[in-house]
Nucleic acid binder design. Structure first.
Lengths: 253, 253
DNA sequence: AAGTGGTCTAGACCACTAA
DNA sequence: TAGTGGTCTAGACCACTTT
C-alpha cells in the first residue's frame, strides 16, 4: 500500500473518485462527520485531507454549506496579439473601452471601476518606462473589471505624467476615442513588450477579486513603445487562473 | 482592531514583519513553540497562521529544520517570440537542442531526460492537431528539463505519427539538426498559436518538478502550423511560476 | 432548529535535521 | 541528542446556511 500519512491516503481516494467522475463537478463530498466515520479518523485528519485537495484546486468548502467538487468557470480567451488592434480598427466611433468591446462581443456584461491618481512609480514601473526612479511622476489608472457582475481582473495603467498632462486620460471614469486614447493625443504605440509571471495572489488581490482558495494568478505586464523607442505606457493586468486563457499568435521568421 | 480569527491576526503580524524586511529573505521565523508562547495560543492556531503564509507563497517549512521566509529563484526569461528562431539562425552546426542553447547562453548547466512513445492523443491534443479523436496516433516526446541539476520544466511534444514516421524524431534521446529537426524532414512551421493557462500543479507535477507548496504553474501550449495550415506539432510546456518569466514581443499593426 | 464547516484547545507520538 | 515541524487524537464552541 506504500501508505504514508493517513490523510494522504484519504485524499488519494477522494481524488481518485473525482477523477473517475464518481464525484461529479459541483457535487457535494461526504461531510466531515461522514468521512470521520468512514475512515475512522479524527476530524483534524479529515480536514487535512480536504485541505490537500483544496490546495490542488480540486474542491472548495463553504462554511455552513459543505465541500464541493470545484466547477470550471468558462474561461475567457485573451489574444494579446489582436487585443489592441481591435479597437483601432473598430468601425464604430463608439466611446467604449476596447476591453468592454471584447467582452460584449462574447455576449457578456462588462463593467469597470476606474480610479485615477498621480503617483511616484515603483522601481519596477520606473524601469519599464525608462524613467528616473526618484523624481518621476506617473499618471495611474487603476481599474477593477467585472464580467457578468463578477470581479474578473485588475488592470493598472501607468503613463509618464509629462506625456499625458491635461489629456482626457486624466479624467476619472471610462475614456476612449476612435483609434485609441493614446493615439488621439499623438502618442502612437508601434510595438509592445509583454512579460507574464505566475504566482499566488496577494491578500489584497484575493479580496478584490473574490478568489477561491488555491487560485493562482498571472501577472501580465505590457509596455508600449513609440517609433522612437520611448516607452509610452505600462499596463499591469492581474488575471485569475480560473477564468482566463492567455493567447498569442506568433509568426515564425 | 477588527480582528477576526486569532490566526489571521498572527499571520498579519508575521506578514507585515516580512514585508517591512524585519524578517529577511531566507531568515528563519520563530519556531512554533516560540510563537505559541508569544501569542499565547495553541500550537494548532500557530500552524493555521503559518499555513496561511505558506499558501501565499511567503514562507516554506521543512520538517526538522524550521520555517523560513521564502527566497526567490533567479527567474529565467523565456521569450517565445524568439525562441524558435534562435536555433534556426544559429551559426554553429552543433547538434544541441535549442532549449539547451538558450540555457547555456546564460552560463547555466542544461540537461534533459527524453522519453519517446507512440500514443493515442487526448481529445485536447487531437483537437489542436486537427486529428480525428479515435483512430489517430501521435508520436510523443516527453522531456524533463534540468537547469543546474534542478528540475526546471516539463515539455511534451506531440506529432501526427504519419508525418514523422521513421524520422530521427523517433529516436530516443536528444535530437537536433541545423535549422531544426522538423524542417530537416521537410516540415516547415510558418506560424504558431500559443495558449497559456495558470493553475495549481497536479500531484505528479509537484513530484517530478520538486515544487514547494503553493507554487503555481503556467501550462504553455504551442501549436505549429505549415504554410498550408496543417498543424505539425503541439508542444505543452509546464513552467513553475517560481522560476520562469514568459515574454513576448508584439508588433502593433 | 439542525447541520455544515471554521476556529481553538491540550495533549501525544513520530520523522527528520543539525549539533 | 535535542529541537524542529509533521501527524493524529478528542473534545469544545462558533459562524454560517439551509430547512
Amino acid at each position: 500500500m506504500a501508505s504514508g500519512p493517513r490523510y494522504h491516503e484519504i485524499a488519494a481516494q477522494l481524488r481518485s473518485a473525482i477523477e473517475r467522475g464518481e464525484l461529479a463537478e459541483g457535487q457535494q463530498l461526504p461531510t466531515e462527520a461522514e468521512l470521520m466515520a468512514q475512515f475512522e479518523v479524527s476530524r483534524n485528519t479529515v480536514r487535512l485531507a480536504l485541505r490537500r485537495l483544496s490546495d490542488e484546486g480540486l474542491v472548495v468548502s463553504g462554511q455552513g454549506r459543505g465541500t464541493f467538487v470545484r466547477t470550471q468557470h468558462r474561461p475567457f480567451v485573451w489574444n494579446w496579439t489582436e487585443l489592441e488592434s481591435r479597437s483601432k480598427h473598430a468601425l464604430s466611433g463608439s466611446t467604449v473601452d476596447q476591453w468592454a468591446v471584447a467582452v460584449e462581443a462574447a455576449n457578456r456584461d462588462a463593467r469597470q471601476e476606474v480610479r485615477v491618481s498621480i503617483e511616484q512609480p515603483s522601481p519596477e514601473i520606473a524601469r519599464r518606462l525608462g524613467l528616473p526612479e526618484d523624481s518621476a511622476r506617473t499618471l495611474v489608472r487603476q481599474r477593477i473589471r467585472y464580467v457578468d457582475h463578477q470581479p474578473y481582473q485588475l488592470a493598472d495603467s501607468y503613463f509618464p505624467l509629462h506625456l499625458v498632462q491635461d489629456s482626457p486620460l486624466m479624467e476619472p471614469g471610462d475614456v476612449s476615442a476612435p483609434g485609441g486614447v493614446l493615439a488621439s493625443i499623438g502618442l502612437v504605440q508601434v510595438r509592445y513588450y509583454d512579460e507574464i509571471t505566475v504566482r499566488m495572489p496577494t491578500r489584497r488581490e484575493t479580496e478584490l477579486l473574490n478568489l477561491a482558495a488555491a487560485t493562482p494568478v498571472a501577472e501580465h505586464s505590457r509596455t508600449g513603445y513609440a517609433a522612437d523607442g520611448t516607452a509610452l505606457r505600462v499596463m499591469v493586468t492581474i488575471l485569475p487562473g480560473d477564468r482566463h486563457v492567455i493567447a498569442y499568435d506568433v509568426a515564425a521568421d
